[in-house]
């Protein structure tokens, strides 16, 4: 995957301008943290990259075909197990053993076959992370991936995540500079439109 180049991106919701002539370059094979105050358009930018929102104008080049994501909410199928949730996005490209190993590495050993609705908030978050990591996407979009995780778990998850996503292009939204350090990430500042 080549660098992801965003040029002159504009987006409005009614009268509210969310992105105005926003430009940035996301380096391929690196983790880039997008940081900025609430309401500055971080999630909107991610949604545009994921194809969930249309930009009013501007260009994006280097966007790969396949993207995987951790959304702000977990967005898991609650009736199904962690393994089923992951298999839903990976299909047969990842074996059940690999899924089990990944879940275990994220501290979910013993909970792999439990319906997700029975898991705690932190466990659900880790299932969502495991799903994004195992999915085939060349670009990983992570919207506050460590939300709801305690400090110890966050560090353990970040270490495992870095190992598994090495060499992939990652764009991560966070409010916490410590998380950018934890992920050895480049930092991209976004400002409120005045």
């Amino acid at each position: 995957m080549s660098d992801l180049v965003i040029q002159g991106l504009n987006k409005r919701f009614g009268e509210k301008r969310v992105l105005e002539a926003y430009s940035a370059t996301i380096r391929a094979g690196r983790v880039t943290c997008v940081m900025g105050p609430s309401g500055c358009g971080k999630t909107t930018l991610l949604h545009i990259l994921m194809g969930l929102e249309q930009a009013d104008s501007g260009t994006i080049t280097g966007l790969p075909e396949r993207i995987s994501a951790v959304f702000q909410e977990d967005r898991l199928c609650e009736d199904f197990s962690a393994v089923s949730n992951i298999r839903l996005v990976t299909g047969k490209t990842v074996s059940e053993d690999e899924i089990m190993q990944c879940l275990s590495a994220f501290g979910l050993a013993g909970s792999e076959q439990v319906p997700v609705r029975e898991l705690s908030g932190g466990m659900k978050r880790r299932v969502a992370i495991a799903r994004a990591v195992l999915a085939e996407g060349e670009l990983l979009i992570l919207d506050e991936p460590f939300k709801g995780l305690d400090e110890v778990t966050r560090e353990a998850v970040a270490t495992e995540m870095k190992r598994r996503i090495a060499g992939r292009t990652v764009l991560m939204v966070t409010h916490d500079p410590a998380e950018a350090v934890l992920m050895d990430a480049d930092v991209l500042e976004m400002r409120m439109i005045s």
Binding site: G51, L52, A69, S84, L88, G137
Partner: peptide, 20 residues
Amino acid sequence: KMTEMADVFRIPWTHRLVYI
């Protein structure tokens, strides 16, 4: 939001039917 998740991960409609 679940439909958006399925769109991003390009989940085929048969799987969307069963899981979502």
